[in-house]
Design a binder for these strands. Sequence first.
DNA 1: TAATATTGTGTAACCGTTTACATAAATCTT
DNA 2: AAGATTTATGTAAACGGTTACACAATATTA
Lengths: 329, 329
Amino acid sequence: MVATIREVAKEAGVSVATVSRVMNGSGYAHEDTKKVVMAAVEKLNYKPNEVARSLYNRKSKLVGLILPDITNPFFPEMARGVEDYLQQFGYRLIFGNSDEKREKEIEYIDTFLQNNVVGMIASTSEEANENFDNLEIPVVLLDRTGEKLPAVYSDQKTGGRLAARVLLDRGSTNIVLIRGPVEIKPVYERYMAALEELTQAKVNVQVMDSSLTLQGGQICARQLFEQYPNTDGIIACNDIVAAAALQEILKRGIRIPEDIQLIGYDDIAFTQLLHPPLSTIRQPAYEMGAQAAEMLIRKINQEKIAETHKKLPVSFVERQTTRRKVEKP
Amino acid sequence: MVATIREVAKEAGVSVATVSRVMNGSGYAHEDTKKVVMAAVEKLNYKPNEVARSLYNRKSKLVGLILPDITNPFFPEMARGVEDYLQQFGYRLIFGNSDEKREKEIEYIDTFLQNNVVGMIASTSEEANENFDNLEIPVVLLDRTGEKLPAVYSDQKTGGRLAARVLLDRGSTNIVLIRGPVEIKPVYERYMAALEELTQAKVNVQVMDSSLTLQGGQICARQLFEQYPNTDGIIACNDIVAAAALQEILKRGIRIPEDIQLIGYDDIAFTQLLHPPLSTIRQPAYEMGAQAAEMLIRKINQEKIAETHKKLPVSFVERQTTRRKVEKP
DNA sequence: TAATATTGTGTAACCGTTTACATAAATCTT
DNA sequence: AAGATTTATGTAAACGGTTACACAATATTA
């Protein structure tokens, strides 16, 4: 059904080596021969088998991508950033969701390797990093960082501090800080930075735990007002949890941002559709993905890379769950 | 760096054939030999190269997945359904976003084929279907359907009709029906079904166009109230557009659902977080993905398949952008 | 114990490419 | 016109697995 290089060679009346050479533009080939070969290629609709190529070259046109959970709207943005960038260079993505689970991460790393990927981009836990050791292919960490591996991530510390500053500057004094899972490094970092900032401000601060999911957020939000009814500021670990909190706030008839301020993290798309639209700390997800892809391609092409650790800036997106800042005269 | 079967064979003092046999549990192998081989495998941390396997077998453990846009929250659900199911059987996903563009679809189909995928799952336009002709590997359509190919999709007609019925039964009489891009079959079908139902009801109906994105929805929503200020019901082509409409409604201070009813389509996650929570028609996205994966595996294993066209039911998710139904005594 | 069946193992061909090397043809030097 | 270059092409050996086939060793049977 699918034509092989031998059939093309036969059709064109040349050897397979010649076909290979004209296909790849490598080595010599007479103009006339090129035409004959291309005609045969055309006629048989020949497309070189990537698997055979990959076997010989010991590298494919495949890039492995491991993300925690594509169902969390933060990651699709990143994935598209990666894909859109790689796609232009003919690379394809093998993709896996890890759910932040070590076994899954390892399983995907292994199978990606078995498929001769040229490189990998991964948001994996720090402990999984050792699985990247002694690989002869480049790996770039995304939304994570580490000593040895190049990485593209965002400035969680500034993000966390910023979130805290916002509530502080706008007058919250009884703040609940919702901490996400501590195993997830970036989430932990933003939490720590916010906590530090709040602590320094000598304001009343309570810490609560939540998963990064909607269900987790809802459970947390419900408890929050039972335990700390006079809260006047909430810093959520991500936008999803913030959205859950917002819903609870509304349900209880608390005025926002007058009685309570709320700030999320990520700036995922639907955040602006909430009512009131959610103030949040923006991470440039798409850009992060694209830059990771760019760095990976650089590595693949053995180019020198100026900075192997790219920390992208975050920014405060002011919407309507925080008050206007009072200007000090 | 990475051990090959030859190195394992040498280490174990046997031939490559023997190693292959014990790895695959095919043919005979003496118990003692097995032990020796497995020890060597262990020692060298040998993992068979899938590429070489794939070349010989002419099929890999890779499945191609083409989705329109992973950035639209409807699709990640589906993708996870596919992945979670396939993952158990050791299949991996090569993934591509098509943006509903014919060239991209074809490009991905071609490169997937070049990588010896065992099968493909695709949400592609009808015109791309011919590219699936004469393939020796199974393909299942997802969220789309067609004559020749097996497919898993949802009942768009019932969905469209249901959406219309809901607004009708709850008393809307000046309804705007937002039609999505007509090239996208499922979107068109739900539109047509709704239109039919509305027309029959002899109610006042206006049609507007929108893309499936937030930006498109916002533009559409703005125009909507300028052109049809006394609208009292909106059927959106999907939840994203519905969310945009909801925002416009709120901005204009129109009461919902008292003055206007709104219904979306898909039931993507954040829909319940809107304020008020959005009534919508639910498509079982995850389930659809999982079932497509199941069907594909059946096909790969050459099992008989009872129904090659699985139409999954949709349902009305009643939330707070539609009124309570008035019971007729 | 010889004949036969079963089990265990190795050799080499194959999957579809790329490329080192050999050799032939064309072109350039002097 | 002979020799040196350059260009053009083919042959065969990789790449890392799987498996048909041959053959040897062991177990079973009569």
